[in-house]
Deep mutational scan, measured.
Amino acid sequence: GGHPVTTQMVETVQNLAPNLHPEQIRYSLENTGSVEETVERYLRGDEFSFPP
């Protein structure tokens, strides 16, 4: 991942996926670069990993 992630982006995802840890959200956003894509992954039931 190398996309810039803002606190705003993390908070937006958190509102839609409250049971995800912020670190999981941030890591996913760094890989996708997209709030929409991260939320899609969540709704699909994809696994969210923590940063290594």
Score class of each variant (00 low, 15 high):
residue 10 V to R: 03
residue 18 P to S: 07
residue 38 T to F: 03
residue 42 Y to F: 10
residue 24 Q to W: 03
residue 45 G to I: 00
residue 38 T to I: 05
residue 35 V to W: 08
residue 12 T to F: 15
residue 23 E to Y: 07
residue 45 G to Q: 03
residue 21 H to V: 07
residue 15 N to V: 14
residue 29 L to T: 03
residue 27 Y to S: 08
residue 37 E to F: 05
residue 47 E to P: 11
residue 29 L to Y: 01
residue 42 Y to Q: 02
residue 37 E to W: 04
residue 4 P to Y: 14
residue 8 Q to D: 12
residue 38 T to D: 01
residue 16 L to G: 03
residue 11 E to K: 12
residue 33 G to A: 06
residue 19 N to S: 12
residue 30 E to I: 09
residue 23 E to A: 14
residue 45 G to C: 04
residue 33 G to N: 07
residue 27 Y to K: 10
residue 7 T to W: 12
residue 41 R to N: 08
residue 45 G to L: 01
residue 33 G to F: 06
residue 16 L to E: 05
residue 44 R to D: 05
residue 41 R to C: 06
residue 48 F to M: 09
residue 8 Q to E: 14
residue 2 G to Q: 13
residue 51 P to M: 06
residue 2 G to W: 13
residue 18 P to Q: 08
residue 9 M to G: 02
residue 2 G to D: 10
residue 46 D to E: 15
residue 47 E to A: 11
residue 48 F to D: 01
residue 13 V to L: 04
residue 35 V to G: 00
residue 15 N to I: 14
residue 17 A to S: 03
residue 46 D to S: 06
residue 42 Y to E: 02
residue 37 E to C: 10
residue 12 T to M: 15
residue 13 V to K: 00
residue 28 S to P: 06
residue 46 D to C: 14
residue 19 N to V: 06
residue 18 P to R: 08
residue 14 Q to W: 07
residue 31 N to L: 15
residue 44 R to W: 04
residue 24 Q to I: 03
residue 51 P to W: 04
residue 4 P to I: 15
residue 52 P to E: 09
residue 1 G to K: 12
residue 27 Y to G: 07
residue 3 H to R: 12
residue 32 T to Q: 02
residue 49 S to M: 14
residue 4 P to M: 14
residue 47 E to I: 12
residue 20 L to V: 03
residue 28 S to L: 05
residue 33 G to C: 07
residue 26 R to F: 08
residue 36 E to G: 08
residue 29 L to Q: 02
residue 45 G to N: 05
residue 39 V to L: 14
residue 45 G to E: 03
residue 20 L to G: 00
residue 26 R to G: 01
residue 16 L to I: 14
residue 50 F to H: 04
residue 13 V to P: 00
residue 31 N to W: 13
residue 34 S to L: 03
residue 32 T to K: 00
residue 7 T to S: 13
residue 20 L to T: 01
residue 51 P to E: 04
residue 39 V to N: 04
residue 10 V to H: 02
residue 35 V to Q: 02
residue 28 S to Y: 06
residue 24 Q to P: 01
residue 9 M to I: 02
residue 51 P to F: 06
residue 27 Y to H: 14
residue 22 P to Q: 08
residue 50 F to I: 04
residue 28 S to R: 00
residue 45 G to R: 00
residue 6 T to A: 04
residue 45 G to W: 00
residue 14 Q to C: 11
residue 29 L to P: 04
residue 20 L to I: 03
residue 32 T to C: 07
residue 19 N to P: 04
residue 42 Y to R: 01
residue 11 E to F: 07
residue 43 L to D: 05
residue 36 E to C: 12
residue 42 Y to N: 01
residue 41 R to Y: 05
residue 35 V to A: 06
residue 7 T to P: 14
residue 39 V to P: 01
residue 50 F to C: 10
residue 2 G to E: 10
residue 48 F to R: 00
residue 51 P to K: 04
residue 11 E to P: 01
residue 38 T to L: 05
residue 36 E to L: 12
residue 33 G to L: 07
residue 8 Q to T: 12
residue 40 E to T: 11
residue 31 N to T: 15
residue 27 Y to P: 05
residue 22 P to E: 11
residue 46 D to H: 09
residue 21 H to P: 02
residue 37 E to V: 12
residue 48 F to Y: 01
residue 25 I to T: 01
residue 24 Q to D: 03
residue 36 E to T: 12
residue 37 E to L: 13
residue 43 L to S: 05
residue 43 L to R: 10
residue 14 Q to M: 14
residue 18 P to L: 07
residue 24 Q to R: 01
residue 52 P to D: 09
residue 17 A to Q: 02
residue 13 V to R: 00
residue 1 G to S: 13
residue 35 V to F: 04
residue 43 L to V: 09
residue 8 Q to F: 10
residue 35 V to L: 08
residue 8 Q to A: 13
residue 8 Q to H: 12
residue 14 Q to I: 09
residue 7 T to F: 10
residue 31 N to Y: 13
residue 48 F to L: 07
residue 1 G to P: 13
residue 31 N to Q: 15
residue 39 V to F: 09
residue 4 P to R: 15
residue 19 N to Y: 09
residue 24 Q to M: 05
residue 41 R to F: 05
residue 35 V to P: 04
residue 20 L to E: 01
residue 18 P to T: 07
residue 41 R to P: 01
residue 31 N to F: 14
residue 34 S to V: 02
residue 4 P to F: 15
residue 24 Q to K: 05
residue 17 A to P: 00
residue 12 T to V: 12
residue 44 R to T: 05
residue 30 E to N: 06
residue 7 T to Y: 10
residue 21 H to C: 13
residue 26 R to C: 10
residue 41 R to A: 13
residue 28 S to K: 01
residue 1 G to R: 14
residue 45 G to H: 04
residue 25 I to A: 01
residue 49 S to N: 12
residue 6 T to R: 04
residue 37 E to Y: 06
residue 28 S to C: 08
residue 21 H to L: 09
residue 4 P to T: 14
residue 33 G to I: 02
residue 9 M to A: 06
residue 35 V to K: 00
residue 48 F to T: 01
residue 18 P to E: 05
residue 17 A to W: 05
residue 21 H to T: 15
residue 10 V to L: 11
residue 34 S to W: 01
residue 30 E to P: 00
residue 10 V to C: 09
residue 50 F to S: 04
residue 20 L to D: 00
residue 16 L to M: 12
residue 44 R to M: 08
residue 2 G to C: 15
residue 17 A to N: 02
residue 44 R to V: 05
residue 11 E to H: 11
residue 1 G to V: 13
residue 40 E to W: 09
residue 50 F to W: 15
residue 40 E to D: 11
residue 26 R to I: 11
residue 10 V to P: 00
residue 44 R to F: 05
residue 3 H to V: 10
residue 10 V to D: 00
residue 24 Q to T: 01
residue 15 N to C: 15
residue 50 F to E: 03
residue 11 E to C: 13
residue 23 E to V: 08
residue 6 T to N: 07
residue 14 Q to V: 07
residue 27 Y to E: 08
residue 24 Q to L: 05
residue 5 V to S: 03
residue 29 L to N: 02
residue 49 S to G: 11
residue 50 F to A: 03
residue 32 T to A: 06
residue 10 V to E: 04
residue 34 S to P: 00
residue 38 T to Q: 00
residue 37 E to Q: 10
residue 42 Y to G: 02
residue 6 T to H: 06
residue 36 E to I: 11
residue 34 S to Y: 01
residue 47 E to G: 08
residue 4 P to C: 15
residue 42 Y to S: 02
residue 8 Q to R: 12
residue 8 Q to N: 10
residue 12 T to Y: 15
residue 15 N to K: 15
residue 36 E to Q: 13
residue 37 E to A: 11
residue 39 V to G: 01
residue 12 T to Q: 15
residue 21 H to Q: 08
residue 1 G to D: 10
residue 8 Q to K: 13
residue 9 M to L: 05
residue 40 E to K: 15
residue 19 N to F: 10
residue 37 E to N: 07
residue 35 V to S: 02
residue 34 S to I: 02
residue 24 Q to H: 02
residue 16 L to A: 09
residue 47 E to W: 12
residue 11 E to S: 10
residue 13 V to Q: 00
residue 26 R to M: 08
residue 11 E to G: 07
residue 35 V to C: 04
residue 14 Q to G: 07
residue 43 L to E: 07
residue 43 L to K: 10
residue 44 R to H: 07
residue 3 H to W: 13
residue 49 S to F: 13
residue 45 G to K: 02
residue 28 S to M: 14
residue 28 S to D: 12
residue 19 N to E: 14
residue 36 E to W: 13
residue 10 V to G: 01
residue 16 L to Q: 09
residue 3 H to K: 11
residue 32 T to E: 03
residue 19 N to K: 11
residue 11 E to T: 11
residue 49 S to D: 15
residue 51 P to L: 04
residue 16 L to Y: 11
residue 44 R to P: 02
residue 24 Q to N: 01
residue 34 S to T: 06
residue 25 I to L: 01
residue 40 E to Q: 14
residue 17 A to D: 01
residue 13 V to H: 00
residue 25 I to P: 04
residue 47 E to Q: 12
residue 30 E to S: 11
residue 27 Y to N: 08
residue 12 T to R: 15
residue 34 S to Q: 03
residue 2 G to R: 15
residue 35 V to E: 03
residue 9 M to S: 04
residue 22 P to D: 06
residue 4 P to L: 15
residue 46 D to P: 00
residue 18 P to G: 06
residue 43 L to C: 08
residue 42 Y to H: 04
residue 12 T to H: 14
residue 48 F to C: 03
residue 20 L to P: 00
residue 32 T to R: 00
residue 16 L to P: 00
residue 29 L to W: 01
residue 26 R to W: 12
residue 22 P to T: 09
residue 46 D to A: 08
residue 40 E to H: 12
residue 10 V to F: 08
